[in-house]
Design a protein around this nucleic acid. Sequence first.
DNA 1: AACAAAAAAGTTATGATATAACATTTCTTA
DNA 2: TAAGAAATGTTATATCATAACTTTTTTGTT
Lengths: 166, 166
Amino acid sequence: MMPKNFLPITSTQVFVKHDHRACARSAMEAAHELCAARGLRLTPVREKVLALLLESHQALGAYAVLERLAQAGFRSQPPVAYRALDFLVEHGLVHRIEKLNAFVACNQPQAGHAPAFMICNNCHQVAETPGKRASGTLGKKARAIGFHIQSTVVEAEGLCAACQAA
Amino acid sequence: MMPKNFLPITSTQVFVKHDHRACARSAMEAAHELCAARGLRLTPVREKVLALLLESHQALGAYAVLERLAQAGFRSQPPVAYRALDFLVEHGLVHRIEKLNAFVACNQPQAGHAPAFMICNNCHQVAETPGKRASGTLGKKARAIGFHIQSTVVEAEGLCAACQAA
DNA sequence: AACAAAAAAGTTATGATATAACATTTCTTA
DNA sequence: TAAGAAATGTTATATCATAACTTTTTTGTT
């Protein structure tokens, strides 16, 4: 179950000013509920990594995460960050952005199997949009040649509305 | 101009048996003509890297390319491979597959600005399909929020028809 | 409570991918 | 043929990621 006050942020909102405290808090609550529901353990490192990623809508590299973990008193070897990130990605609480070799918190843990991303090259924020698997040209082509899609990467780089204006 | 006998391979053909000699040869001819037309220098390393990638429809990592270059008598420092790959990618003769941190030769150098890829997890071949920039859900969403797309990454992993059968 | 099994975390080491920076050579063209 | 541009040579290092093994913590069972 989602928290009663759960209001998933939409890609529309990521690039504009919003109540980020509430945005991060509700995502964290959703993560806790999802883990409870599935019998997963959101251990201190895992929760901390998620919290770090929820601080902004920017993607963080594994070593940036690691640095912040160390500052917070956790161990500072690469596997510490990678294990937590792997767990969070595996359960859909965090997404990997291939183009950046970096990670963003998921806004709607319950929703998407095939999210797409918009990456602003100026403010470095990343918006997620819940897209369906292979809805477009690619999906059509895949069906045409009998290719069975298991996972997709869909990422657009460009400029968000605010950064175009400036 | 394309060579008169230029028959771009389509994504349909990549995953099935085809005359690969002809496929590679025509792509190389197309590359030469494209470079001639744009005043670009397809130097020996660059041509060799393209030839290596044209040997199969599998993606090669930069260090795999480097190894083969060394075997062919070229220098063996990373920048040798990366510079050639950068050149080829910049001019659309080769594409980078983000999911694999690897590179594939382009089948239709003249065509695409926003290609999409199907990566078979079994035979490791990669098919390119010429998709338009942001034709689907993502493009619609981007327009809706005023996000200006500069480039896209669209990659699907899965199983090609032949590998599903086996 | 005591134990065994499983999961997570600690630790060391290394592998894989990518680029910065500067020197030298080759090509182009005026 | 000299100057500038482009490409290549070379050294060093930055960045991203995982293998492999040990120890600790948690969980489930008796």
